[in-house]
Write a protein that binds this DNA or RNA. Structure first.
Lengths: 244, 244
DNA sequence: CTTACGGATTGCTCTGCATCAAGGCCGCCG
DNA sequence: CGGCGGCCTTGATGCAGAGCAATCCGTAAG
């Protein structure tokens, strides 16, 4: 499953829960509801496993593969998606540096993970995570809290997919990424293609492109080279997003 | 959060993972990946808390309420939903007897829970769940596995909401309920209104009604009184659902 | 510099589902 | 038993977004 965990090297977001769908677990465990003893559990996991570089569009694993490891993105961007038999695709999450996936899975993965851009990913055998949970019962709780965040994000995305208009979807997407993918200049880095964004938001490439253009024309955003986006008018964007 | 847990009194489904969106956790922990020591943890939780009867449309809790308890449905049907400011509604899950909710929540609930029909619900203070986890570390693992199932179901629902047609959505919905809501005669019990189904599938009441009619006319299903549905041709329904 | 290629943009048309608008059915209450 | 109100169904119409196709643009290769 699309479980990702943000590591200690990534600065915690002040709005962990308001950022919309992240499809990821945060190791900081922002929810204290299961007891606040997470401590350094995250650090232990972070150092485990072997890192490997994946090329553009190279799969980390595919739907149907045995789920015998969890993965942690050290650098780059990974997409998780499900396919219908006729090829329609739904991206259920994007993972950035520090995010983890594969924790929430059954015997086999029910979705595919691919590098969107060249990405470094650490692979940790599931057995080691299990063993670590035996040593430190608190880890299970940390993961529980993390999975909770994942679930909340998934439900937020259900609201988006089921009830929001194209414009609202894109506005929500931009604001969600505002929290997670800002560079030094405050711009958002969106290395994924329009098609990827479309498949994440339940739209087509053309519609995504048109809505980008409209936001640009309205001076709400500015499209920079390199796939970067500057949010000029966050308030308007917020209104367009209809909460979330 | 839409975390529900099916108790030991409900017969395990042979297709726990194929039934599509359930928005619920199963205490049987069908995934052995976190270690298979769940044992009787579920039974302990089942007996806890006080049961209470909720009338039709009566809220168990609302969006924004402090999330200081988890709830277990003993009998009836509960809907979980999120609202947009202008009133658009997305139902993120239906809970039946044995299902549990509220485990995956932050400080406050981010959705509302209401009884669809008169329902008996047990309320368990969160502190007791936490205490129980201290006693039995294995419980955290059981919940972890359960939450995993919830997450997989949520992602399946994302695929449905983002990429399936109205017909496919309804077919998927019927097959998912086939696993969970059969009565003695093999019919599906759907006590929720057309509006509820529409808000769950990201459609309108009218579209749901029209698709029901089409399936009926094609002799794929039969609509019985009392909101019951008989699946006459599961194969055709399966084709229409496009997997899931 | 020229060509080629893959993604992005834009225009035009089409359509699935939403929206608006009647009825129809049924259970409830006076 | 009759009227009322809620839900469901069905029909007519509209529209947001899909589908199709033609550039455009930026990058890489020659």
């Amino acid at each position: 499953m699309g479980v990702l965990i943000r590591g200690a090297n990534v600065k915690p977001s002040p709005h962990a829960f308001l950022g919309g769908p992240r499809s990821g677990l945060r190791m900081e465990a922002p929810l204290g509801i299961f007891g606040d003893r997470s401590g350094d559990d995250t650090a232990v996991l972070n150092a485990m496993g072997e890192a490997r570089l994946f090329d553009r569009d190279q799969p980390l694993f595919a739907e149907g593969d045995a789920a015998n490891a969890v993965y942690r993105v050290m650098d780059g961007l990974v997409r998780l998606y499900k396919l219908l038999p006729d090829g329609r695709r739904q991206i259920v999450g994007f993972l950035r540096a520090g995010d983890m996936m594969g924790l929430a899975a059954g015997e086999r993965f029910v979705y595919t993970a691919e590098a969107v851009i060249p990405s470094t990913v650490r692979r940790i055998p599931r057995a080691r995570v299990t063993a670590l949970m035996d040593e430190r019962p608190a880890l299970a709780r940390t993961l529980l809290a993390a999975m909770t965040a994942e679930l909340l994000a998934a439900q937020e995305q259900m609201l988006l997919l089921g009830r929001k208009t194209a414009r609202e979807k894109l506005a929500t997407f931009l604001l969600a990424n505002d929290e997670r993918a800002q560079d030094a200049a405050g711009r958002i880095d969106l290395p994924m293609s329009r098609t990827d964004i479309a498949d994440y938001l339940g739209l087509t490439t053309e519609t995504v492109s048109r809505e980008f253009t409209k936001l640009k024309t309205a001076h709400v955003i500015r499209l920079m080279e390199g796939g970067k986006v500057e949010l000029v008018d966050r308030d308007t964007l917020s209104d367009l997003a209809e909460c979330a």
